[in-house]
Design a protein around this nucleic acid. Sequence first.
DNA 1: TATAGTTGTCTATATCAATAGACAAATTTT
DNA 2: AAAATTTGTCTATTGATATAGACAACTATA
Lengths: 254, 254
Amino acid sequence: MIKRAMVNRPVAKSIERRSGVSLWRQIADQILHSIAIGDFVENAALPPEMALADRYGVNRHTVRAAIAALVQEGVLRAEQGRGTFVLSRKRLSYPIGARTRFSAGLQGQASERRSVLLEAIVEPASRRVADALKLARGADVIRLEARGEADGQSVSRATSWFEARRFAGIDAAMAETGSITASLERFGVSDYLRQSTVLSARHADAADLADLDLQPGAIVLVTVAVNVTPDGQPIQFAETRFPAERVELKLSAL
Amino acid sequence: MIKRAMVNRPVAKSIERRSGVSLWRQIADQILHSIAIGDFVENAALPPEMALADRYGVNRHTVRAAIAALVQEGVLRAEQGRGTFVLSRKRLSYPIGARTRFSAGLQGQASERRSVLLEAIVEPASRRVADALKLARGADVIRLEARGEADGQSVSRATSWFEARRFAGIDAAMAETGSITASLERFGVSDYLRQSTVLSARHADAADLADLDLQPGAIVLVTVAVNVTPDGQPIQFAETRFPAERVELKLSAL
DNA sequence: TATAGTTGTCTATATCAATAGACAAATTTT
DNA sequence: AAAATTTGTCTATTGATATAGACAACTATA
């Protein structure tokens, strides 16, 4: 009953027409994927446009549109007469575990890593936030909007909520230290754990595109997490968006 | 420096033009997202087409194209003169942890849950597979292709590899028991741990669309995992694709 | 130097995506 | 019963997407 495969060559993925996603966008996504899994190697030349057109069963101009988009994104470089070359570095691998902070654990992967506070706002808690933080609905919470950068590229976009009464001034601490962990220590929280994390994915919306410097049609990984003190008291509720083309999440300490 | 928000209403997400992703597909995705986060409630009517067109800043016919796609997918039902209604159940929440098997932990969420073996093939190990299983490159491995179903809907699509010599006949065990855990027990593996999991997301390719019964443009969550015996010997390497519109991953025991 | 291979640019045409307006058909409200 | 609301269908027009072919510009190689 079991079969034996004769050869072991890469699967030829095909393309969906009249799908609402243009062919050039689908091909651009597949090229990105091929780079990510090491099918197209860094610094090497892509197959010629005619060969790609043949592989995907489309016109050469359609392939050119895909390549143009990736050149625009800084993933490829095209040189007339020579070929098209892969520039992209590998995706950043974010560790996620009970005690892993987002800004930690990236040693060696990116030389410059920082978190930029975009906005701090006091607002009444929505039902979702109130439930997560175990507050009364409508209680004041502080919402922090922050962007994570590595080597000058945007790699994360986080929205997090804290109880306003307990953590008044956390925005200033964040702006100063650039770290949630360091900021929480000023409020007497020396240790905290990741209670739950829920993971999903969707297309980037307009805000994501602007904040993460993405091209339309990009995909974001979304984590929704609740952090608690060791005795189980919720202190932070956070939704973080990661550009799927630049980041993968490594679940550690499982 | 901190600001105070006056009102607390849902953010109006907007739409990207000339992006390679058609407006109707973007709106369909946003409607799915709104349903997933509980913004549009199950069984309730969607806002009228004109209101949606206004919200997204597009023509009514564009909204109609988005709704038509979701009706086709079975997410919405439109009734002339009455309105358009949400049919979709919530997304399935898959637990992932050190000892969590994919087929376990879904009690109460789906009444009927099963795994279907699609194909079993012996092939030489690629570099990726050989590295993960600590085998010589080109050593024989068994590749199993399986689809997970819940309530008649496809919710996962897994490709997994085992060392052929040690696990010869695992395909028959899988077909019989429908469970990886039960099959491994027959080979003397009574316990195993998830050594590592790497998570990413991408657009569904043609194979995913067919296997998971998705519409073009859909997004899949991808987990790549290595399972090991308690003493650290790798036994299974698996890549699993989940339709992001139907599944979220809940990271537990972190 | 000549040739082959590759990317860049142009024109032309057909199809899909989106806008616009009008009205029909069905349902709910007044 | 009449009016208002909502989905369904039709025509027409514009812009983006995709195909096709030809040739220019540049690079590497025989």
